[in-house]
Design a protein around this nucleic acid. Structure first.
Lengths: 418, 418
DNA sequence: ACAGTTTCCCGTAAATGC
DNA sequence: TGCATTTACGGGAAACTG
């Protein structure tokens, strides 16, 4: 006879990529009478899953049977850890595809099953248990979608194994969802999302003036693109999570990235601040981008806001973000290059916030002159709203700048015309 | 009975990486009497190779049998193309490893064998042929070494199948070797090596005043490190080939890269030239690097040479090389940033040589200010030998520069101390 | 043609073996 | 322990497939 679920307690990854190894561990929670033979456990993928339930079938490519061992001598607890397990798709399976299955691959839930079969005192015992649902992907680009499925499942059901859950998933209240989003940030980085950041996200997803009890549809969260964009809310948010993890970790953890703030709020916050006050905001138009916006007050009282083209991984691979802030320059015709960033909102001197994360300048390696990259923007013309306390340059200085700066100014060309 | 080699003509890759697909084609060169059944060809790896000859054994993981087909209806020529072949190492083979085998993996030669067995008019016929030697690698980092083996083999023997060749390889005269090196460049890029470049390479390998008849040892070419370096001559040269292929192709093909030139020769060439004349040279100290050296004449007649820290793939991934030349700046205290590169040796205006390869400046994507990276070097102090026709800056200008440039100058700190 | 999905494989890092 | 070699796999691009 079968003893379902109870006796063992499996741990497994929540998303598995085909062809990539994973590890799982099963622990026996009941104490068996001492046996003089090894207790073997077999791991199976989607055991007894009714056909047509999934559009893809997988199997464990590697050795899937292993003997349990005593994990803890104090209580004689038995366990077994499978390493180097690997999943492969069953191709040409007789199961016809696309039978009423409208789920995308990242919504399709699967389980790992474990069984231990043995005879004791003439009794046949078949212990069996299954993991909570997991998602199988074939490429890392599917990971964000897969993770969203896991989040939604864990957020909205207590059922241990409802593999059709995402066929018709319930909605989530914002108050519930916001907790899990903040938790994603805190577990992945070390700092969660604060009230203002969550408010911006709520308004992005549910519109202005939404309440915490308003409900978010699964499709709105993860499947439908944001209006005017080519990606969904979660894909956008996850791209920022990855950006932080890879390029912004210390700066994020020290709370120097406001990040989730609307452009309207940004201007509202900056407009009363000193010229050169800036804040950091994640791009809403491109995946995984961060920009800074600074304020400039001109002599006539006009207020001007500038935002740099967002930095994404290609640029951040070349130059760490704190160095970008340290070295960023704006040039405009006839003015010496100048870093417009002075105070991190509200009034933290730039070097106080970021100084400890600046990278050392390149070391001189004889016989070479060290060299580095600096980020630079051109203002096509000295805007009347730009701070411009600098004395005008002499004509000679102006001419020299024209020859040495990489931007065309009034079509003055170098003496070596192409 | 066996018909060796003659009847078929195999084409195969020269270096095969385990786990990566490759393609090979066999063509039947004799005309058979028409047969009404399919003529099947079987591909085998290292067929009948005596054990202990190689330290590693491989087998074809994928389907290795396929029927020949009429390739060309005009002459009825039969051929078969194997696609998606894949090699895997036989592990735990009974062959004990390391039996008198002193070859490295990239020196170990193997062959692909093809056989077609059939009966016609009561006669058993077994056609069989083998490919020329090939090298099996497991990681792309082994490709340069493997390629060197293939080059040496093709350069120095006409034997179709001497798999022990690299156990005791003959030497190559420089005149022979230099041809094959130049040919590597011309086939991989579009431009070979000129006389001056080859002379520099000869001197690097054989010392000054070596003659074209001097001989190069295999170990000197590929196995032993260059004195004071951690890589061999060929590994160094191949790193430059890869650099050109990936980052410098048009500039190389237009002959704007002198590249292989000693530092002594470089100075000799530049010293009589106008200030701002520069040339491009491949780094000899680091793999896959390119630097530029420019000359500056000071008022007192002293000549000064500066070389920038070599650019390698990490920097070149961030910024295309022509843009580096266009935008490169030198700054020193109190002087406006300035591009020291004016004429490509001997006297080609920089923009004339590189202008057509400059990338467009970033487009304005509203509402962001476009931004780019520029390469920059600091001269710690205005060298007395530097060209310095610029009027000294006013104290105000100097102070401003201190605040805005990313380098510390005389320990003047920003107002926002860390 | 196209989007969704998988496969391929370079290049780097880590693991393994001698 | 260090070096030579293989394995692992993220990430971008190509190939596949309905």
């Amino acid at each position: 006879e079968k003893q379902p679920c109870m006796p063992t307690c499996p741990q497994k990854p929540l998303v598995i990529k085909t062809g990539v190894q994973f590890t799982t561990k099963v622990r026996l929670l009941v104490k068996l009478p001492a046996v003089d033979y090894q207790l073997k456990v077999k791991t199976t993928f989607d055991k007894d899953l009714p056909p047509n339930r999934v559009s893809r079938q997988f199997f464990i490519l590697t050795n899937n049977t292993k003997a349990m061992d005593i994990e803890d001598y104090s209580n004689g607890c038995l366990s077994v850890e499978f390493r180097h397990l690997q999943l492969k798709e069953k191709k040409n399976s007789s199961v016809p595809k696309g039978t009423e299955n409208l789920l995308s691959v990242t919504e399709e839930l699967h389980t790992l099953c474990f069984e231990a079969y043995f005879t004791v005192q003439g009794l046949n015992i078949d212990l069996e248990t299954c993991s909570l649902p997991l998602v199988v992907i074939s490429n890392g680009s599917q990971l964000p979608g897969a993770w969203a499925s896991i989040m939604w499942y864990n957020l909205l059901t207590d059922e241990p194994k409802n593999l059709a859950f995402l066929g018709n998933p319930p909605r989530a209240t914002w108050s519930l969802l916001s907790e899990v989003l903040s938790w994603q940030f805190s577990t992945n980085t070390g700092r969660g999302l604060n009230k203002d950041q969550l408010t911006m996200l709520k308004e992005k997803l549910l519109g202005l003036h939404a309440s915490n009890n308003d409900q978010v549809y699964w499709s709105k969260f993860c499947k439908e693109s944001i209006a005017g964009k080519s990606f969904s809310f979660w894909i956008w948010l996850d791209s920022i999570l990855e950006l932080i993890k890879k390029y912004l970790l210390p700066v994020w953890n020290e709370n120097y990235i406001m990040g989730f703030v609307s452009k309207e709020m940004e201007r509202f916050l900056l407009k009363e601040k000193e010229s050169g006050t800036f804040l950091l905001r994640f791009s809403e138009s491109h995946l995984g981008g961060i920009t800074f916006t600074w304020v400039q007050h001109s002599d006539n009282g006009e207020v001007n806001f500038n935002s740099v083209e967002p930095y994404t991984k290609s640029r951040l691979n070349a130059l760490p973000f704190p160095d970008i802030i340290r070295d960023y320059k704006v040039i405009s015709a006839g003015v010496v290059p100048k870093n417009p960033l002075k105070f991190l909102y509200p009034d933290i001197p730039k070097d106080q916030a970021f100084g400890q994360h600046y990278n050392r300048l390149p070391n001189e390696v004889h016989p070479y002159i060290p060299s580095t990259l600096i980020p630079i923007s051109e203002m096509r013309a000295p805007s009347p709203t730009c701070e411009s306390p600098d004395p005008p340059m002499t004509p000679g200085e102006f001419d020299m700048l024209n020859k040495t700066l990489p931007f065309d100014m009034d079509d003055i060309t170098s003496p070596y015309s192409a």
